[in-house]
Design a protein around this nucleic acid. Structure first.
Lengths: 343, 343
DNA sequence: CTCACAGTTGCAAGCGCTTCCAAACGCGCG
DNA sequence: CGCGCGTTTGGAAGCGCTTGCAACTGTGAG
């Protein structure tokens, strides 16, 4: 395996000049640069990351911490991050901490601290103060996506505002019996967003003078199948049935639609359903939703990190509210006539 | 940020001894080991990966190349790989080469060759000879999952056998008008599996003396939404309709079921559908399928690599046929009576 | 023709570890 | 009590790059 020394010999240059020529830093005459380049190409030389990291302190590697890689939002972010990073010549080290708290602990402690990453992107992670301190202590740029991350730069959508708008959309259509499917309590430890979206929902209901019925507040694990099971409970119950469901994610909205179909409920004639995400599958179900461009959020996070690594003005605590797009499809409509508000 | 030197000072030992104590290699008295450990703990010292890699040649990092991170199979593999690797104290560098050929090229050339990874796992990548040579040239363990990878160790399921069994299942139920939804031709460049599964399907049909009608051979991009669109074409066509569909993946099977529902077709009364994968969503749709434990395949790949890194006997070209499990649910049944084979 | 200066280049000192080697040590045995 | 052996230890040489520094080159101005 060729080293920079071999390239230097072949090019008839010193190691130092070759290094500068290939890295693009420092002044090198066009002629030397060309020589170094061809020599490197001929030998198939690529600088060793570890050696150059060690010497320069720069790793060309960012760590991405996600709570799961299966759920739509996370895999979309991974995709956006990955593509942007690869373009910039950076490696992506993935830390999937789905297995719970200890795993996360060891990741934070043993892995991120090993100085292998130049920066870290944390997605939807609600960290303890101690964990945050630990992260900040390594003095590397951090950006959080989709969750609060005190002390770090964050990118997130207006969860509560969107939830409010979603509920309002249903209300304006004439619905008053609106159920909300939120994230599991178990998840709320990590992601505050279920709570935030729930808050937006409640606000809209309150503002409209509508009751938030506890029996219509259900939760699931953010997956289609989880939501499906719980929506069956909700819709199959002998109690009064809501005319609309606002699900905190598209996957849960889809699960709800599937459950509705099982009971012969037509969407939207018998039941309106609205989600949040912009899941690719939404189109198949005609799902009305708020499209949050998760890929784009990932890409933005990377761009921001790279800018900071390039010494951009300190945007350490820049908070971006990523825009969303309201996509009205066919899963929402006026409530069934025989069920207009009684009042 | 503390270095090994600080630990040595604090412990009253030499750098060399501390290194040995913490890495567990070489002889160190229990007393010194203990001292080194506590000193390291007190300082929060963690050895720098790049320095130790540079010195030792071992990286504690494996590269994972996947064609996508959205599709079920890949994200499941990522999960299995990630968990197993993290347990072993290894980092995972993710290369998502979904963006096509050039991206893949640059990944292979610039990234993997940078000697940052100790081993690589390539998922469903059909590589050119040159690319394979390149990979093998770095002299690192490689294992391929779900696709052929000449010269490397591979893990895969018996694609053609399973496909054959799936088709046979339909045939034994009495179906003769069987459609097959395979992977897009575009994908076949990368993954030979659509072709392999198709071959199994055709064999079963041939063996049963059944015709493989070209108009019932459709393909999609392996996603639910892609399959949905194409299944609508298939089922909505004015031509005769098949009584069963064998989809090369669960996601495509689900897309097919959704399309069937659109046309008022009941599954399985009017249409039987069978898939391959073991997708979590299969349960919601009562999908009959062959469960391939993708997570497990990822985990196995890692274990195999680690064994090789530990100097296990050369299993460089070990090929494992990963077992699958036939899961019969409610999406397959005898064909509708008014449509029994005409012959 | 000389001087100053900006643009190039090479030398060599690290970056923070691992590991070879030889020296120091402790022990049991003759 | 001394010797030899196996164990433990520290010194020091790298691993393959980057980069500060000083030396060098060529240019245009004086």
């Amino acid at each position: 395996m060729p080293g920079i020394k071999d390239v230097a010999e072949r090019a008839g240059l010193s190691i130092a000049t070759v290094s500068r020529a290939l890295s693009g830093k420092g002044n090198v005459s066009p002629r030397s640069r060309e020589r170094a380049r061809t020599a490197a190409a001929e030998l198939g030389f690529v600088a060793s990351y570890q050696a150059s990291s060690l010497a320069s302190g720069r790793n060309h590697n960012v760590g991405l911490v996600v709570p799961s890689v299966h759920r739509w939002f996370f895999s979309s972010v991974v995709e956006g991050v990955s593509a942007t990073l690869l373009d910039a010549g950076f490696d992506l080290t993935l830390y999937n901490v789905s297995e719970g708290r200890e795993r996360r602990h060891s990741v934070l402690n043993d892995f991120l601290l090993r100085k292998r990453v130049d920066a870290v992107i944390a997605v939807s992670l609600e960290l303890s103060e101690a964990e945050i301190d630990q992260l900040l202590a390594i003095h590397r740029p951090i950006v959080g996506i989709g969750g609060p991350l005190p002390g770090a730069s964050t990118i997130r959508i207006d969860d509560s505002g969107i939830a409010e708008a979603a509920a309002r959309h249903l209300i304006q259509l004439g619905h008053s019996k609106i159920a909300h499917m939120t994230g599991d309590a178990a998840y709320d430890q990590d992601f505050r967003l279920p709570g935030t979206r729930q808050a937006g929902f409640k606000k809209a209901m309150r503002d409209a003078g509508l009751a938030v019925r506890p029996e219509w507040q259900v939760s699931a694990d953010f997956t289609i199948q989880g939501a499906y099971a719980n929506a069956r409970q909700l819709l199959g119950s002998s109690l009064e049935r809501p005319t609309a469901v606002f699900a905190a994610s598209d996957e849960m909205a889809i699960g709800t639609i599937l459950a509705a179909r099982d009971f012969g409920l037509r969407v939207p004639q018998d039941l309106s359903v609205i989600g949040i995400d912009g899941h690719e599958l939404g189109e198949v179900f005609g799902l009305t939703t708020f499209d949050q461009d998760a890929r784009g959020q990932g890409a933005l996070a990377v761009r921001r990190l790279l800018a900071r690594l390039d010494g951009a003005a300190d945007t350490a605590s820049a908070h971006t509210e990523y825009p969303t797009r309201f996509v009205i499809r066919s899963s929402t409509a006026v409530p069934p006539v025989d069920q207009v508000p009684i009042r």
